[in-house]
Computed example of a mutant assay.
Amino acid sequence: MLPYLLMLGFVMFWIVLEKHALNRTSFWLPLFVLTVFAGFRSDQVGTDTTNYTRNFNHQINAEYFQFNDDIEIGYQLLEYAILNFTSQYFWLLTITSFVIVYCYLKIIKKYSVNYWFSVFLFITLGVYTFSFNGLRQGMAMAIFTLAIPHLLEKRLIPYLLWCAIASLFHVTALFIIPFYFIVNLRIKPTYKVFATFIGSLLVSGLLVSYISSTNDRYESYASASTEAGGFLTIGFYVALMILLLTARYIYKIKDVAFQKLLTFYASGVVFVIPLAILGTNPSGPQRLLAYFTWALVLIVPMVFKRINNVYLYMLSIVVFLLYFILTTSRFSDLSPYLLNPTFKVLL
């Protein structure tokens, strides 16, 4: 766990230092550090990483690469392109990590009212480390974030385009399309959230069955699970949703971007709750939750800026840090962090 904490500490230190020394929002060094940290890891870090590095470990020549109808074409083309010039999986992890971190930091820099705190949440909430397990969906989620400006500014066509591009890496990105209409409907946010929950109750069973039947890789999505990690995670995000909705009411936060982001987040959380009630595998449909929870990196700083209480900042840092330690070490199989054997000479 120590490498993760050292990485987090260094990134936070540099962002604060650059802001105070140069009055500049740090972008490129955090991007570099977070990319290298992800790219230099061993494929033993994360439960699914070895599935992505199999062709590299088997030294597959690009001309013998076989495209699989069950895997999204965008990811396969990327892997094929990398195999054309190297069989080192370091390049796969580094290139994908660069794209993922770049997309998130770009949106954070544009919309965050407290950049260092947003990056802190980006790491501690597991948004950054999500791709350490689900690389394809991690790519899809990151690309989808580029649709957020269009969601907020009510530009449907570009929003659909980014969702389509994201779906080339994981088909689940297509399920986020209806939330454009949910967020931008001219009715009270509370009604939107409630209607989404009821709708999910009605269709969640059919949705899980459909996903699991369309692709052999998703058969486990419909299997029951009693893993504590899934329920703990959903419970955590439901609690945050309630606190944020309460804060919006008490402090009368009327900012349009905040309202839309909170509606997007809350709708996504209640949409996934029925999937959890079904007892589905946390690594399956509940992974849809991550398309929405990343929005907390923008929402929480907005609320905290309005409350403006230093003790609340201190308490939240402790809570999110504990959450980061718990999820990284217990539920994600990301600890211990192991270096790619190719780079152990650096130690």
Rank of each mutant, 00 (worst) to 15 (best):
G230N: 14
G138D: 13
A140I: 07
I60R: 05
I108Y: 07
Y128K: 12
L121T: 08
Q44N: 14
V36R: 01
L244T: 00
Y89S: 08
I242G: 10
T226E: 07
L8H: 13
P158I: 12
Y249G: 03
V319G: 04
S213V: 03
L8A: 12
Q137R: 08
S212L: 01
S26T: 06
F67K: 02
G235W: 14
V345C: 02
F169Q: 03
E72D: 13
L92Q: 00
K305S: 07
L326W: 02
V33H: 02
L105W: 04
L298K: 11
E219A: 13
G205P: 11
L152N: 01
F13S: 15
F264L: 05
I187G: 09
Q259D: 13
F236A: 15
A195L: 09
E153S: 07
L346N: 01
L152P: 02
R186F: 11
R155N: 14
I157G: 05
F271N: 06
I157C: 03
V99N: 03
G39T: 05
Y104S: 11
P282L: 12
L244V: 09
Q66E: 07
E219C: 00
Y323P: 14
M1E: 01
D333P: 00
V183H: 15
A247C: 11
I234M: 04
I157W: 06
S283A: 13
Q59V: 06
F120C: 14
N68V: 00
I176R: 04
K254R: 15
